[in-house]
């Protein structure tokens, strides 16, 4: 469709360009501007070159140390989230009914957590997991387990992970469910006739056919978890100590808590580049899958 020669189309795109420039490019430039300067307030700025970046990327310096700590923490968090949510989402999708009135019920139930705002999720779990008045915390404590997410790092981590799993697994499940629904019945019938086991059906039909939605699910969940801020901030505020201070939380602490705008700007640029790099890797993988498919169909 895009082959028709018609330059009018560019005018239609113009508003979007303007909007993107205003909402993304201008602030980004401001950040770049901050990242190469130092300030002591009063709107006085001093040129600092790549100083902040050098400090940030050197683990032996104070800034570098806390940056890499937060980075590894965030990467670990994302890895754990993916390792739990993707298989769990697939499992839930597989367990969902294919037809009947239960389908609608399941879909609504699944969509519920997705509709709750992030900070509300944080608040819900903050209360839910408290040892004194929270149902979860109280039950766990009464089972004889010493559980206190404000006191123990491990407990804080477990709570945040469980919260994220509760909040986002349905997204993965819904995506996978859509992928599963698109597989024609004939495949299942053929597999039954071929005597395939349940596991073989999964491995040879369902998994390959879900590959593309899974890539999207992995991408979305990675991005989201890598940038997670609100829920852990509400739940633990990054504590106990720095145990749950992810990159985003650390960045806010740096920028708004300590008002180190230069350092924070440098960090956010590096943060941004990391996300872009990982996105690019995913994008390449996905387009390779597509190109592969096109070759097949040609």
């Amino acid at each position: 469709m895009n082959k028709t020669l018609n330059h009018k189309a560019w005018f239609l795109v113009l508003p979007v360009f303007a909007l993107v420039a205003f909402s993304a490019v201008v602030p980004l430039m401001t950040v770049v501007n901050y990242s190469v300067q130092d300030t002591f307030g009063n709107n006085q700025f001093f040129w600092n070159g790549v100083g902040w970046f050098a400090e940030l990327l050197d683990p032996s310096r104070e800034l570098g140390g806390r940056f890499f700590d937060a980075l590894w923490r965030t990467l670990l968090f994302s890895a754990i989230i993916l390792a739990i949510e993707i298989p769990l989402g697939i499992a839930v999708a597989l367990a969902m009914p294919r037809e009947g009135w239960t389908v609608a019920l399941c879909l609504v139930l699944m969509a519920l957590p997705l509709l709750i705002p992030w900070n509300v999720v944080g608040t819900i779990w903050q209360v839910f997991a408290r040892g004194d008045i929270g149902l979860l915390g109280w039950v766990v404590n009464h089972l004889g387990i010493d559980y206190n997410y404000t006191g123990h790092s491990l407990d804080a981590w477990v709570t945040i992970i469980v919260m994220d799993v509760w909040h986002w697994t349905s997204l993965v499940a819904l995506l996978c469910y859509a992928g599963l629904k698109s597989i024609p019945d004939a495949y299942y019938q053929a597999a039954r006739i071929d005597g395939a086991s349940r596991w073989a059906v999964f491995r040879t039909i369902q998994l390959p056919k879900m590959r593309r939605v899974l890539l999207i699910a992995v991408l979305l969940r990675f991005m989201d978890s890598f940038m997670i801020y609100t829920e852990p901030f509400v739940l633990t505020g990054g504590g106990p100590g720095n145990a749950t201070t992810f990159l985003s939380i650390d960045l806010v602490k740096l920028a708004l808590g300590q008002f180190d705008l230069g350092k924070a700007a440098a960090m956010s640029i590096v943060y941004n580049l990391i996300i872009l790099a990982i996105c690019w890797v995913f994008y390449t993988v996905m387009t390779n899958v597509d190109a592969d498919r096109e070759r097949v169909e040609a």
């Binding site: 004939a186 390959p208 056919k209």
Partner: peptide, 23 residues
């Protein structure tokens, strides 16, 4: 079936062997 059903990830040989392997 009306529309061809093959196991995408397998070679032709593996496709043909599949029912025997399962048994």
């Amino acid at each position: 079936f009306q529309f061809p059903v093959v196991y995408d990830t397998m070679s032709v040989r593996e496709n043909l062997a599949f029912p025997l392997k399962n048994r």
